[in-house]
Design a binder for these strands. Structure first.
Lengths: 120, 120
DNA sequence: CAAACACTTGCACGTTTGTTCAAATGTATG
DNA sequence: CATACATTTGAACAAACGTGCAAGTGTTTG
C-alpha cells in the first residue's frame, strides 16, 4: 500500500493514489455534475415529482394539477416555478388560465446526460 | 367547461374532470411514487451524487472517497450511510478499512422503476 | 368598471438536511 | 496491551427548503 508520508491529522491520507485520480476525473466536470444534481433534486421532492408524473400524460392547468394531487394551488404554483426555471416543464397561456406540460426536449437532454454518465 | 357549483373559496375548482381523474391514477401508487422520490432525493445532493458517480467506476475505501471528492471523511461517511440504507451502495470490510461500491442490483431496479413510469 | 376568477408572488414559519467537531468503535501492529 | 488508524456516530448549528396565507397581477364577463 502506498501512503503519503506526511498527514499528521487523519486527513488527505490516500490509500490508492491511482484510484483516487480516476475517481477525480469522473467528477471533474463540475458544471455537469451540478446540473445532474439539480435535476435529481427537483425530482426528489414529492410535490414536484407528482407534478412531473402527472404532466407526462397530458397538459393540465394549475387548478386541475392542484386538484389531482390534492395540494394547495399556491404550493403547486411555487413548485411549478422551479420546474419552469429548470425547463423541465413549459406552459401555454389561454386567457386567464395557464396550461403546463412537460418540456420534452429538455427532459430528454437531461436523460441523455445522465445516461452518458451511468453507461460509460 | 364543467365546473363544480360550490367552491366558495378558490379551491377544489376543477376544470376538466376527466383529465384530473387520469392524473390521479398516474400517482395513485403512493408507495412507488415515494420510493422514486427517495432515490431522486438521494442523487439530488452534491456529495452523494459525487459518491455514486465515483463508485460507478471502482470500489473505494472511505478515505480515498473523501480524498477524491475533497470532502471531510465524516461527511462522506454520513452520506454513505444514507446511500447504504437505500441499498444504492454496498460495502465490504477488509481489516480496518471499508470498501464501498455500487449495489448494481438495486440501482438497476431503481432505473427500471423510473423507466416504467416515464415510458408508459 | 366592478366583480370573479386563475394564477403568481412575497413573507413568515416550522422542518429537514448537510456539515463539522468530538468522542466512540473496532481492528491491526509494535 | 497500548498506540495508531479507518471508520462510524451523536450532537449542535446554520442554511436551505416546502408550505400556506394574504396580497398582487392580469384577464374575462356581466
Amino acid at each position: 500500500m502506498k501512503k503519503e508520508t506526511n498527514a499528521p491529522v487523519c486527513e488527505v491520507e490516500i490509500v490508492d493514489g491511482k484510484k483516487v485520480e480516476k475517481a477525480k476525473e469522473k467528477i471533474a466536470d463540475t458544471d455537469q455534475v451540478l446540473e445532474m444534481a439539480d435535476i435529481f433534486k427537483l425530482l426528489g421532492e414529492l410535490t414536484r415529482l407528482k407534478i412531473v408524473l402527472v404532466l407526462l400524460n397530458s397538459e393540465l392547468c394549475v387548478c386541475d394539477l392542484a386538484a389531482a394531487m390534492d395540494a394547495n394551488v399556491s404550493t403547486v404554483s411555487h413548485q411549478l416555478r422551479l420546474l419552469r426555471n429548470a425547463k423541465l416543464v413549459k406552459y401555454r397561456k389561454e386567457g386567464k388560465m395557464v396550461f403546463y406540460s412537460i418540456d420534452d426536449n429538455h427532459i430528454n437532454d437531461a436523460i441523455k446526460k445522465i445516461k452518458e454518465h451511468t453507461e460509460e
